[in-house]
């Protein structure tokens, strides 16, 4: 049951304040590195000024900012990023690695400054990140399902009059 508790816990409440503070202070550095990681998953010619790259930056920024807000806002922010990742040529695991990357980036940035963040904060943060990754996985599946739904909807629209005829 403890396991269930951990994974269904309220993320926003649990998000460690020290880490939130770190993100607030170093937002641009974190964002640049995180965006750099996401773009590295794309074919080599995806440059950072393309509409996709800008949308990714926007979405990742929203996710960082959502750590201080409500679960609903975080879900919406996650969806903005996952929507882009879920239609790319790389694998689902690469898409999910984006969230491991954030953890790594924060630990590297947080571990390097004067202010040392205690291990217990990292541990708490680790749980939050696991929760975030699971949510991201859900969102990824929602978007893949949506793509299948789009296909069905499109077929139905194409046969609109035929189906109407058979109903009559």
């Amino acid at each position: 049951m403890a396991y269930v508790h951990v994974f269904l816990g309220h993320f926003a409440k649990d998000m460690n304040r020290e880490i939130v503070q770190l993100i607030r202070e170093k937002r641009q550095i974190v964002l640049d590195q995180w965006k750099g990681y996401v773009l590295s998953l794309f074919p080599s010619a995806m440059k950072s000024a393309t509409p996709i790259a800008q949308a990714i930056e926007h979405g990742l920024g929203d996710v960082l900012d959502s750590f201080e807000t409500t679960p609903e806002k975080r879900t919406a922010a996650l969806s903005g990023v996952i929507r882009i990742l879920a239609v790319q040529s790389f694998s689902p695991s690469k898409s999910m690695s984006v969230f491991f990357a954030l953890r790594s980036i924060l630990r590297e940035i947080g571990g390097s400054g004067k202010r040392q963040i205690k291990q217990k904060h990292w541990d708490e943060f680790q749980t939050s990140m696991e929760q975030l990754t699971l949510e991201a996985f859900d969102s990824y599946m929602v978007h893949r399902e949506k793509i299948y739904q789009l296909k069905v909807d499109e077929s139905l629209r194409q046969s609109f009059m035929t189906r109407r005829g058979t109903r009559a």
């Binding site: 990681y37 998953l41 790389f90 953890r103 630990r107 990292w122 541990d123």
Partner: peptide, 28 residues
Amino acid sequence: MPKFAPKLSELKKEFEEKPGLLKGDYSD
């Protein structure tokens, strides 16, 4: 040092340098 998370450099190795379309083996 990170306890659970791999370093960013390790992740990059995993996903960037292993062979894949337009990556790693094909980069040159």
